[in-house]
Amino acid sequence: MDSPAAAPTTGRSNGAACIYEATGLVKEFDDGQVHALRGVDFKIDEGEFVAITGPSGCGKSTLLQLLGALDRPSQGVLKYRGQSLGDLKDPSAYRAREIGFIFQAFHLLPTFTALENVQIPMFETSRPLKERREHAAALLASVGLEKRLHHFPGKLSGGERQRIAIARSLANDPSVLLADEPTGNLDSENAHLVLDLLLRLYEERKMTVILITHDPTVAARAKRVLRMKDGRVDTSA
């Protein structure tokens, strides 16, 4: 894998506006018996490429759930552009318009073609049918899958599936990409390709990318790394 263009840091870049701000973030499950997050504080600026790393069970995925408004914190505040995500009346609108999700297991719908899978998030927009189709085709072309538009996921390789998932995450032109171990299910060659693609999209679209990874080589390509340990951001790293 290529070495990063610039060494990742644990500090924020200067000058950009804050997109996420977490203060005393706590998340408990099973009536407080499981403590996934034990008081997390951080800030992420607009246009940052941040990798969240840490051992299994440290709370990375829980944090991603909160960033994507898939769940609410038990305590503390997580703000997106100054607004508390916990207070959102319609989290689905935030997920549809502001966020693009990329999952480790791709999570494509098996009975839909690549072109149809990319159109799925567009149901929550007022985009006309024809435009949806054209936009989905353009997104698939941008990830190098223009010849796979009508293929079903089951007929495609893991790398191709993840590229469809990346195209899908861009369907509504989100401000933030949240990626959960995007290379975790790929061989090293495809992992490399997918990471290159993410970096290219990040550069071209000037979006904020937050990815979770175990892999230090993947984390090394991010502009900043947040290390987590035992439900907290590890500031000693």
């Binding site: 997920r95 999952f103 999570h107 899908r168």
Partner: peptide, 16 residues
């Protein structure tokens, strides 16, 4: 269940 949760994660409203 998984598919429905993915649709929700992708921004589908519960009503849909």
């Amino acid at each position: 269940k998984q598919e429905l949760s993915i649709l929700l994660a992708l921004g589908w409203r519960r009503r849909r």
